[in-house]
Design a protein around this nucleic acid. Sequence first.
DNA 1: GACTCATATTTGTTGGTCAAATAGCGTGCC
DNA 2: GGCACGCTATTTGACCAACAAATATGAGTC
Lengths: 242, 242
Amino acid sequence: MNTSSLDVEEQEPRSVVDDVVAQMRELISERGLTVGDQLPTEKELCEAFGASRNTVREAMRILKAYGVVKVRQKVGATIVDNRMSSAMEMFSFNVMEISRDTFSDIQGFRCLLEVSSVEELFDKITDEDIGDLRDINAKLLTTEGVEFAAEQDFLFHTRLIQVLRNKAILDVYGLMKPVILRIIQKGKTRRTFENDTYREHEEVIDAIAARDRIAYQYLMKTHLEAGYAHFNVTDPFPEKPK
Amino acid sequence: MNTSSLDVEEQEPRSVVDDVVAQMRELISERGLTVGDQLPTEKELCEAFGASRNTVREAMRILKAYGVVKVRQKVGATIVDNRMSSAMEMFSFNVMEISRDTFSDIQGFRCLLEVSSVEELFDKITDEDIGDLRDINAKLLTTEGVEFAAEQDFLFHTRLIQVLRNKAILDVYGLMKPVILRIIQKGKTRRTFENDTYREHEEVIDAIAARDRIAYQYLMKTHLEAGYAHFNVTDPFPEKPK
DNA sequence: GACTCATATTTGTTGGTCAAATAGCGTGCC
DNA sequence: GGCACGCTATTTGACCAACAAATATGAGTC
């Protein structure tokens, strides 16, 4: 069921490249290297690890893909921390249909983030935040196509999360962006955004402005669950048994 | 402040490898490839993209690092979806100290996940779940070293999250594992786990068993915030201005 | 049909070449 | 001295060719 965290994956014989990656990790750890520090040159790494340059390069590609190093010609490899944006990159691959389970899981997550956080949200929100929310929502009426509308829809919810001033939560929300965007678009037309979505957002903002906890929670929950109808009606899910 | 989502990073001229990665994405998208399907061989990709084999290989390494493909000799590249475990890999790099901000953000997140989800938690939790929690917590008394204790501590909280039956939330929790582990260990000894942590967990379990919402929320919040003392007292943070 | 084995194909690794970028150094000028 | 400029050595980027290792495939045998 869950293939992500706990299963014991059969370990294939580690390739030389994987080995070099591991040694690079050790090197970073041992020397206590951190953001801004330089790694040795490719040549030095070759000698240190006894691997060919291509192998070292492939290992370096992995670190770059992880967003852990940044390489510039002549300068060499510098340690950075772009792991969050790298993670976004990787989750933007459309390698599979969104299953009904994934959909309801993500929606449940959003519910937790946006509905259950009401206390902290009402605590921290300012008039400026509310103004921004109205501005963003207004753009839903400009009818620039479904993709644009979906972006604005997502931006609205992101702006709301931003009020919590919690980078970890904001990052995770950004991480889920590709999936959320596809959920938002599913089964909707430009008119859906113009009519339903815009109105629902406005009602949510009104509830926030009035500091009405009950109304906010009800409206946001309803709004999030509204997507479920669109999602459910579309297709019978050609589920793919492994 | 926030380097993850919104800033406009100066775009350097894309390398050939990045280009090949982009073309592979297109190819996957166009052909509607999904988990289990095969990619063309390296040779075919070279011809299709007009790139050398090493370049194609480096691009393939990136896709492998993303957990999007799995490559076996002779068989070739198969599309998979191990992005979550790949994400865990990348976040297990210790490239930077955990800042106080990161700490409080993560703790805030955990608070949201574990405290605010009380309704759903109490709704879904079974006696079996509670039994598991007690079993896991009991292992804190076996005194096998700090690393083991920290693992058990983390496992306790993971098991709690598992009750929600939400894969997305569970995955995100797993994603934060490396950071959480370091937070858990910070400033603690084996005795801390044996005494304080064990007792706090037991109290939480008791509250759950009694279905006492108020007590649960208070105890869990207190427990999570307890780490803050350990964290704050240790060092003055040699902050590293860029 | 079932099994064995040789072979061809495909990925893994290595060594090398050339190109492109550029940090660092030296030179000359003011 | 200090500054601007250009050269050069170094380093990464891309490519090529060759061989090793793994293995899917098919021919051959019973």
